[in-house]
Nucleic acid binder design. Structure first.
Length: 681
RNA sequence: GCCGCGUUAGCUCAGCUGGUAGAGCAACCGCCUUGUAAGCGGUAGGUCGUCCGUUCAAGUCGGACACGCGGCACCA
């Protein structure tokens, strides 16, 4: 008697099928429309090939383009596969390695054929064409189960050393599958579409080339990566390309130049020249942070830029971080043109790459009692780090930056409450600045670390619980854990924000540190009269002003909330008869603390409106003969087209002053208690 | 640091196979006193990133370096 399988469909119906039956067969039995639309199958929750026979009773859901996440993942993976086949067709001797789907497409890493260098962007159109040929050939993508040794022998024979190396490291219990399309084969877990022809030949585009290390390790070979973006259809692709174009307009480097906020130049690469308008944003942000920190019980300090190398040796930075430090010899430079400027024998000092050792020095002055804890020392601390050359990026990754840094010295028992307090403060600040949604990551113990496992257990649990207690993890929150990513001295929380094109940047952080107080001999006197080591929490909310302002620019497309806008209003006249009145209006606003500029040029009002709109000035105050006579102002907020409101001068001043009030100075709802949540909307 | 690409007027960019630099916008000057996203006319502006080389001749070809861009690795 033949064994039949019971296949349960999402509508609850059950079909009895013979062994050898595939999801494709079931789809065909249901109807030709579904057979055509089906791209893959979810069998007992696992995404599988349409043509892979059932092996047991199963829950089956057929995946179509409507299941967009699954469908995109499938086609992107297939595009990568087609890319690899196309490259090997065109460039024999190229070795294949990995080619996964990404958030918007796919990539494939190749080892170029000997004698042929890495791929360049000029190669891409040719490869795209070949990919279309592979798609047009519509070869079936066939799954085959092979043994490990057979796969290795196969690839070794083909000169594919990367694939041969990789297959031998797959877990022993893993089923090893090869996918065949025509004569071409790749080691792949799958699943894939039934055939290459199921891909839309007009829904992908190869976008760029890049180097990438084999298995992500700098010590390994540099491979040549080709990136593409891939979609279900042409319309989606075009929409995506349009989004990228729009995103490019929000690039902080571009807006920084257009709005005259800052510039960079090669003589000080990695350090920002802040212009008056950019600095106005910084000042507004700093003043706001200072108020928030004061209110949260922090005490602000200022510590030296240059400190003797001895201190960095004691802190451990000299050993671990020296390559990233700027070292300054403490000697008078020679003035004899025939002799070297530096003797090389002077004592060494270093620009601080972080503030913590200096903060410990402040903590160590005098004797601290347990009654003084927690002690929260804050500094807008300017640091220098000599970053790897290729890492610099606009003002988001620089060599001189200012952190909104603070170190909380506390007892182990206070860590939880301090972490909760910090998380809430950060959440408030991020909301005030327009970021109700952000990503939180908990970086867990690395391979190489200081301290016992039980200490790490406790530290990780404390941070995890504190985030949960602050109601910032769980349903609706973007919280994840990163095994192995913590600092060697303790676990850390990372708070990430996203830039215009979707890259995420770590901004806020909180790091638990049991080591630094020990190394720099920080102690307090406990209730028992004995000396104890405090725990140190390194923490920052913005992270650095440079990066955070960069993110702010991109997030708001340069249209800052009024309280941060570098120019809050421009008075623009229509006729010169209004000039005197315009000066009066500008004077009144300026006296009320509004950052206002006047445009009395002999230009058409159309011209002025266009210019100041492009400059993203939030409020345009238009004054003609009528307004001058009636002592009113026509208020034209940015982005409201021709709509405007005519106000009396006093009303206007009151209105702008109210709107330009920083969020922390506005009338606020009653304070929440310790167990009050800040739930995200 | 690694791979690829780039660097021409204040900005955005053109300049084919080497023959000595061009546009639009901005700037400046003049006219227009103007009502909600570009009025009109004119003028000026560049040792083509730096250095070295090939050549009768280099923005253009080759090399080195610097910086930038996209990734990789590293990180706030």
């Amino acid at each position: 008697m033949t064994q039949h399988f019971q296949i349960r469909l999402p509508d609850g119906s059950v079909r009895e099928v013979e062994p050898g039956t595939t999801p494709a067969d079931v789809a065909a039995a249901i109807g030709p429309g579904l057979a055509k639309a089906a791209m893959a199958a979810r069998v007992n929750g696992e995404l599988r090939d349409l043509n892979r026979p059932f092996e047991e009773d199963a829950e089956l859901a057929l995946v179509t383009a409507r299941d967009e996440a699954d469908a995109l993942e499938l086609v992107r993976h297939d595009y990568a596969h087609v890319l690899a086949e196309a490259v090997q067709n065109l460039f024999p001797g190229t070795q294949i390695t990995f080619g996964p789907a990404t958030d918007d497409g796919f990539y494939y890493d190749f080892a170029p054929a000997p004698g042929r260098g890495p791929f360049t962007e000029e190669d891409l159109p040719v490869i795209e064409e070949e990919m279309r040929r592979v798609i047009a050939r519509d070869d079936a993508l066939v799954r085959e189960v092979w043994t490990r040794d057979r796969v290795r022998d196969f690839f070794e024979k083909q000169g594919e050393r990367f694939k041969a190396e990789w297959v031998m490291e797959l877990p022993a219990d893993e089923t090893i599958t090869m996918y065949r399309s025509g004569n071409w084969m790749d080691l792949c877990r799958g699943p894939h579409l039934a055939s290459t022809g199921r891909l839309d030949p007009q829904a992908f585009k190869l976008t760029r080339v890049s180097g990438a290390y084999w298995r992500g390790d700098q010590k390994n070979a540099m491979l040549s990566r080709i990136y593409g973006t891939g979609w279900l259809n042409r319309k989606q692709l075009d929409a995506h390309l349009l989004r990228l174009e729009e995103a490019a307009k929000r690039d902080h480097r571009r807006i920084g130049q257009e709005m005259d906020l800052f510039h960079l130049q090669s003589e000080a690469h990695g350090s920002v020249f802040w212009h008056p308008k950019g600095w106005a944003i910084w000042r507004g942000l700093e003043a706001y942070m200072r108020r928030r920190l004061d209110a949260a019980g922090y005490r602000e300090i200022k510590t030296p830029q240059l400190m003797d190398v001895g201190l960095w040796e004691a802190s451990g930075h000299w050993g671990k971080f020296r390559e990233n430090m700027f070292v300054v010899p403490d000697e008078v430079p020679g003035t004899d043109p025939d002799r070297p400027v530096l003797s090389g024998t002077g004592d060494l000092m270093a620009l601080k790459p972080m503030n913590c050792p200096a903060h410990v020095q402040v903590f160590r002055q005098g004797i601290t009692s347990y009654r003084d804890l927690p002690l929260r020392l804050a500094e807008f601390g300017t640091c220098h780090r000599n970053e790897p050359h290729g890492a610099l990026h606009g003002i988001m990754r620089v060599r001189q930056f200012t952190q909104d840094d603070a170190h909380i010295f506390c007892t182990p028992e206070q860590v939880f409450e301090e972490t909760v307090g910090f998380a809430r403060l950060l959440d408030t600040v991020y909301r005030d600045l327009g970021f109700p949604a952000y990503t939180i990551k908990l970086a867990l113990r690395p391979e190489q670390r200081a301290g016992s496992d039980s200490l790490w257990d406790a530290a990780e649990t404390t941070l995890r619980d504190a985030v949960a207690f602050a109601k910032l993890s769980g349903e609706g929150f973007n919280f994840s854990e990163l095994p192995g990513e913590g600092a060697f001295y303790g676990p850390k929380l990372e708070f990430h924000l996203t830039d215009a094109i979707g890259r995420t940047w770590q901004c806020g952080t909180l790091q638990l540190d049991y080591v630094m107080p020990e190394r720099l001999d920080a102690s307090y006197v406990g209730a028992d009269g004995e000396r104890h080591r405090p725990v140190m929490l390194h923490r920052a909310i913005l992270g650095t002003f440079e990066r955070f302002i960069g993110i702010l620019i991109e997030h708001h497309s340069g249209r800052f909330p009024l309280w941060l806008a570098p120019v809050q209003a421009v008075v623009a006249t229509i006729v010169s008869e209004a000039d005197d009145y315009a000066r009066e209006v500008a004077g009144a606003l300026s006296a009320a603390g509004i950052r206002v500029e006047s445009d009395l040029r002999n230009e058409k009002i159309n011209y002025k409106i266009r210019e100041h709109s492009l400059a993203k000035v939030p409020n345009l105050l238009v004054l003609g003969k009528r307004e001058a006579e009636e002592h009113t102002v026509a208020l034209r907020p940015l982005g409201t087209d021709a709509r405007q409101e005519v106000l009396g001068l006093d009303a206007l001043v009151a209105r702008l002053v109210a709107e330009a009030t920083p969020p922390d100075l506005r009338a606020s709802p009653p304070q929440q208690g310790l167990d009050g949540g800040n739930r995200r909307g």
